[in-house]
Computed example of a mutant assay.
Amino acid sequence: MASSKDNKPADQVENVAAPVPAAAAAAPPPELKSETKTPTSYLAVSEVVLRVLLFATTVTAVVVMVTSKQTEWIPYPAPPFRVRNSSRFTDSPAFVYFIAALSVAGLYSIITTLVTILALLKPDNWKHLVSHFVVFDVLLLGIVASATGASGAVAYIGLRGNSHSGWLKVCNIYDTFCAHIASATGVALIASIVLVLLILLSVFTLSRRSLK
């Protein structure tokens, strides 16, 4: 007769768990997969591109403004009835302020671009830098925007004049000079838009970090 120890009931048989495949165990959870598709480095690369664009626009605006000198013969109410006169950016304090503001923006873009590139090696450091960048970006946006507005106001007076104040237009004489001023002001406006995009990118990065 077989021993009762050898005959175990069916409900007491131990269930052996099936082995988990190695591929399934190594697979990351779904939330990690979604994060790997959009890593933080993509945002840092976008910021580097925008800061390089900021450098290009500010330097272009400064170079165009500095090379805006033009010399022409202008009418004079006494003999010899025509005199040779030059017009340059140093004749207007608004244009001097424009050069100073855009030069600071260009230097700032160089420094922040290099810092951002170094931060790409450690994305965690870049996240901390964003909170500092956004403060200086807002400050610089105010400076660049005010310089662009001042330059545009003086350029408009040179183009149209002001009959109420007796300010004569000069762009009919210094056409090349006015073309340089208009081009530099337009490029500075693009630099202001780039700064707005940088601020929005920083705000998005900070909000994304706070939601985690």
Score class of each variant (00 low, 15 high):
Phe89Lys: 03
Ser46Glu: 04
Ala2Phe: 12
Lys33Ala: 15
Ser131Gln: 13
Tyr42Met: 11
Ala147Cys: 06
Asn7Leu: 10
Tyr174Gln: 01
Val52Ser: 13
His132Pro: 00
Val48Thr: 13
Val196Leu: 03
Leu129Ser: 10
Leu50Thr: 11
Lys169Gly: 13
Thr71Val: 00
Ile199Phe: 03
Gly142Lys: 02
Trp167Gln: 12
Lys33His: 11
Leu50Gln: 15
Val115Ser: 13
Leu43Ile: 12
Asp124Ala: 15
Leu118Thr: 14
Thr67Ala: 15
Gly158Glu: 01
Ile74Tyr: 01
Ala179Gln: 09
Lys169Asp: 06
Ala100Arg: 09
Asn15Glu: 12
Phe177Asn: 15
Asn15Ala: 14
Trp126His: 15
Ser210Met: 09
Leu139Asp: 11
Val49Met: 07
Ala184Gln: 03
Leu197Thr: 09
Val170Phe: 07
Ala191Gln: 01
Glu72Gly: 10
Ala18Pro: 06
Arg208His: 09
Leu201Asn: 15
Val13Pro: 03
Ser202Ile: 00
Phe55Ile: 00
Ser146Phe: 08
Asn172Val: 05
Gly161Val: 03
Val194Gly: 08
Gly142His: 09
Ala44Met: 08
Lys212Asn: 00
Val96Thr: 10
Pro80Asp: 04
Val63Cys: 01
Gly186Ser: 14
Phe204Cys: 10
Ile181Cys: 04
Leu139Trp: 01
Ala2Arg: 14
Ala25Glu: 06
Ala24His: 10
Arg209Ile: 10
Leu201Ser: 15
Val170Ser: 15
Ala23Gln: 03
Val196Asp: 02
Phe95Asn: 08
Phe89Ala: 08
Leu189Tyr: 06
Glu31Ser: 15
Leu43Asp: 08
Ile110Leu: 02
Leu118Phe: 13
Trp73Ala: 13
Ile110Tyr: 02
Cys178Asp: 01
Thr71Ser: 04
Ser87Ala: 15
Thr36Asp: 13
His164Tyr: 15
Leu159Phe: 09
Lys122Cys: 11
Ile157His: 09
Ile143Leu: 07
Lys8Thr: 14
Phe204Met: 06
Asn15Ser: 12
Arg208Pro: 02
Lys5Gln: 07
Val45Lys: 14
Val66Glu: 08
Ser103Arg: 04
Ser86Phe: 00
Ala94Arg: 07
Asn7Met: 10
Ser202Tyr: 00
Tyr108His: 07
Leu107Gly: 15
Glu14Arg: 14
Ser131Asp: 07
Val154His: 02
Phe95Cys: 03
Ala10Asn: 12
Trp167Asp: 05
Thr38Asn: 07
Ala147Asp: 02
Ser46Val: 05
Pro79Asp: 04
Ile193Asn: 09
Arg88Phe: 08
Gly149His: 05
Ile111Phe: 14
Ala150Leu: 08
Ala24Phe: 10
Ala61Leu: 00
Cys171Trp: 00
Val154Cys: 02
Ser86Arg: 00
Phe133Thr: 12
Lys212Gly: 09
Lys8Glu: 01
Ala2Gly: 06
Ala105Ile: 03
Ser87Met: 06
Ser165Asp: 05
Leu32Ser: 07
Ala2Gln: 05
Thr57Tyr: 11
Val62Met: 02
Val203Pro: 01
Ile193Arg: 12
Arg51Gly: 09
Ser202Pro: 00
Val196Thr: 01
Ala145Met: 01
Ile99Phe: 05
Met1Ile: 06
